[in-house]
């Protein structure tokens, strides 16, 4: 502010709006924020590159045709086969079981919390739900193996009991694991639906269930689909539960859920324990499988975005 230097006798100085000292703190903060943004973007780019390069190298040796049509995945055996289908099928089966559990239970909890529970009940239950989301997956893995599976074998109706490690228990445990994620995010989306829409529906003689399913659920759909997709993504990428509870069997496509089979993540975890020589073909398989998983998650996200655009009801 330099107004005093411009004062002329008798004439009051005009108030100065000129630039004074540069605000250094502001610049520094902006730089730090840009840096923070770059770190996450750069990490993603780095991961994609470090996945892509070895994957390309892998397909230099193994043909893409063999990778997607061969029905055996035995890169670590004497007789080597490089068909990713067994891993893919196991991943899809476990994820499908998890989603079958997580969607009804998760959405049910969300509807209860958002539309039925009183304020006090919700204030009590929601934090508990969110704590559940923080249980380490290794705990879920042993829970599946040592608690769910014995119980499942007890009540199993037919003579062929589930194997010690099987996809069904892994899927059940994984489903329970993602319930809190789905429930909590879906509840957020439903709570965000304006009260005025609910009142309009109640004033037309709707029951609570009709308000929930015909008005609130469609209006919150984009958030709910996002919750489900995040749940599925967690299920696809989950490693510990499937490694512990579904096993590492990869010789052939296994479709019976009471048998054990390795998912893509379980194979990666099993193979990538440090005893494979770097740049060997065995080592490269990890990256080929990793890329496949990455593409799957990406496709799922793209699909869900399209679905949301198609079906959501935009309120304001």
């Amino acid at each position: 502010m330099t107004s005093t230097s411009q004062k002329v006798a008798g004439i009051p100085a005009a108030p100065s709006v000129r630039r004074g000292r540069p605000r250094l703190g502001e610049k520094a903060i902006e730089a730090l924020l840009v840096l923070a943004a770059i770190v996450s973007v750069a990490t993603t780019v780095g991961i994609v590159i470090s996945l892509a390069v070895p994957t390309v190298e892998f397909f230099g040796t193994v043909s893409l045709g063999e990778f997607v049509t061969e029905t055996l995945w035995t890169p670590l055996f004497a007789e080597k086969h490089y068909g990713v289908l067994p891993l893919l099928v196991a991943t899809l089966i476990v994820t499908a079981i998890a989603v079958t559990i997580a969607i009804p239970v998760g959405l049910g909890s969300a509807i209860y919390l958002s539309e039925y529970a009183g304020n006090r009940t919700r204030a009590f239950l929601k934090p508990i739900l969110e704590i559940l989301a923080g249980i380490p997956t290794v705990v879920y893995g042993f829970f599946a193996l040592l608690a769910v599976n014995p119980w499942l074998r007890d009540i199993w109706p037919s003579q062929t009991k589930p194997e010690f490690q099987n996809m069904l228990v892994a899927g059940i445990a994984m489903g329970l694991m993602i319930v809190p994620t789905v429930a909590s995010l879906a509840e957020d989306a439903m709570t965000a639906v304006p009260r005025s829409l609910r009142e309009g529906a109640y004033a037309l003689a709707s029951t609570k269930m009709q308000v929930s399913t015909r008005v609130v659920l469609p209006a919150a759909l984009s958030g709910i689909v996002a919750a489900i997709v995040l749940g599925i993504s967690r299920a696809l990428g989950e490693t510990m539960i499937v490694t512990i509870a579904a096993g590492l069997k990869t010789d052939g496509i296994i479709v019976n859920p009471i048998d054990g089979a390795a998912t893509m993540t379980a194979y990666i975890a099993g193979a990538g324990q440090g005893d494979l020589p770097v740049d060997s073909l065995d080592y490269l398989t990890i990256f080929a499988v990793g890329s496949t998983l990455f593409l799957f998650t990406l496709a799922l996200n793209a699909l869900s975005i399209r679905m949301v655009r198609r079906f959501r009801e935009v309120y304001e």
């Binding site: 309009g200 004033a203 037309l204 003689a205 009709q210 015909r214 008005v215 209006a219």
Partner: peptide, 28 residues
């Protein structure tokens, strides 16, 4: 509420089509 309906301060149509807004009450 079936017999005593209500119109609110701020227009609050459902985020559905015009047709579905009218049929909502008929359906429930």
């Amino acid at each position: 509420r079936r017999r005593i309906g209500m119109v609110f301060q701020k227009p609050n149509p459902f985020p559905k089509s015009i047709y579905d807004n009218v049929t909502y009450g008929l359906k429930v």
